[in-house]
């Protein structure tokens, strides 16, 4: 009984506390860097698209709102031919970011995406691709993966030996 009265009293005292509300449109809330908001596709330090079209984000997505088609340029570099996120379905769980092996897909601290027309919530690659490395500067997937792409031949990635000369009989 006393605890009831005490809690009533404590709640009553909140009358004299400072209010926590951000008066949103006039006053923006400071969002932490890892806030899971709008999804973007980032670029590697050389300005190339980080996304290699591996489909892991799409597979991880619990609401299946990511679809893409991988393709390849003439030098063997993979990139998405199209990349589509249906934000009207997205629940901003961040699984796609977690699944991404190349740090390409990242959730940014931005939630102001409301639209009057639902169709406008379908983002294509040109809407998603940003000119930034996002949260993970310096990472370049092709520098560590064994595939040869334009400007990086076999054996030129980090921790790689030059290609084997299969005609050599040296031990």
């Amino acid at each position: 009984m006393f605890s009831l009265l005490r809690s009533m009293w404590l709640v009553f005292l909140h009358m004299f506390h400072k209010r926590e509300t951000y008066q949103y449109p006039e006053e923006k809330a400071p969002l932490p860097a890892r806030w899971r908001g709008r999804i973007a596709l980032t670029r590697d330090p050389d300005g190339g698209e980080r996304c290699v079209g591996c489909y892991l984000c799409a597979a991880a997505c619990p609401v299946d709102c990511i679809s893409l088609q991988a393709t390849e340029d003439e030098h063997g570099r993979r990139y998405p031919e199209f990349f589509r996120i249906n934000f009207s379905r997205c629940i901003f769980c961040g699984f796609c970011e977690e699944a991404c092996p190349t740090y390409a897909i990242q959730l940014l601290p931005d939630f102001e995406m409301a639209e009057y027309n639902r169709q406008n919530l379908v983002y294509e690659k040109e809407n998603l691709l940003i000119n930034s490395q996002g949260k993970y500067p310096g990472y370049n997937y092709y520098k560590v993966a064994g595939m040869a792409i334009g400007g990086k031949d076999k054996g030129e990635a980090e921790r790689e030996e030059p290609p084997v000369d299969i005609k050599s009989l040296l031990p």
Partner: peptide, 8 residues
């Protein structure tokens, strides 16, 4: 309620 919950 807002007042007692530190809201507006």
């Amino acid at each position: 309620l807002a007042l007692w919950q530190d809201r507006y």
